[in-house]
């Protein structure tokens, strides 16, 4: 699975970093941030003068260790988004032969590096685990829906919303019944006069927008439409 999505850059960076530790020149060390604030132009130029990436050098070595320039094709494509025609293994149906073909790799990747060879352990150590990437939402999604609300609860929710929609807002009801706001919206609808009142309030706010804010909002809406149509 992981082999599908790893980019060659990780290994290249590793190679560069290891070569940097071997060579005495300190300018090659990668973690150093790009020098923007040097005192003189000459120093800035010198600090930015890093050697090309090893994959761009003719580094094919002969048997006696001396490197000779040879003719070869350098293939080092830039990073790009994965093609949607490349189906993730999880999405393959169980009858698909690609599942069986990748089975050994998946097992090797999922098992801890204790029993494997040092080379594979080094590769798995450079692979950051999924949990190391921060989640966008605050809470992890529930594995299973809880179904903790009964029919009486939902009727109570509807009654509260119909009685006093201002106090019992969607967010308040979601907090009170410990469910998502989407669920509250699915269960009940505010009375019509309340909806009209809220709409009038919204219109009042919109009327106060100046030309800049209005244009920015309209542009944002248009960009959203383009996003969902796959145009940007």
């Amino acid at each position: 699975m992981e082999t599908l999505f790893t980019r060659p850059v990780a290994s290249c960076c590793r190679r560069l970093a290891s070569s940097a530790t071997r060579t005495p020149r300190p300018a090659v060390v990668l973690p150093q941030p790009p020098a923007r604030g040097k005192a003189t132009a000459a120093r800035a130029r010198r600090s930015l003068n890093i050697p090309p990436h090893p994959s761009f050098l003719n580094s094919s070595k002969t048997a006696d260790g001396s490197s000779q320039p040879t003719e070869e094709i350098i293939y080092n494509p830039p990073e790009s988004a994965a093609s949607v025609y490349h189906t993730p293994v999880k999405f393959l149906p169980s009858s698909d032969p690609r599942r069986r073909a990748n089975l050994a790799e998946i097992l090797a990747a999922s098992q801890p590096a204790s029993s494997s060879s040092p080379s594979s352990s080094s590769s798995s150590s450079t692979q950051p685990s999924v949990e190391s990437f921060p989640m966008l939402s605050k809470t992890a999604p529930a594995l299973k829906p809880r179904h903790h609300l009964t029919k009486e609860d939902i009727e109570e929710m509807r009654r509260l919303r119909a009685e006093d929609p201002a106090t019992n807002s969607v967010a308040a009801l979601a907090r009170r019944f410990d469910c998502s706001q989407l669920f509250v919206l699915m269960c009940c609808q505010a009375p019509k006069e309340h909806r009209e009142k809220m709409k009038a309030v919204e219109e009042k706010y919109k009327a106060r927008w100046g030309p800049r804010r209005r244009a920015a909002r309209e542009e944002r809406a248009r960009r959203n439409v383009m996003l969902y149509n796959g145009e940007i």
Partner: peptide
């Protein structure tokens, strides 16, 4: 941004 299901990446 990548979307994961468990340990598998579904899209990016």
């Amino acid at each position: 941004v990548g979307i994961f299901s468990g340990k598998d990446k579904l899209g990016e």
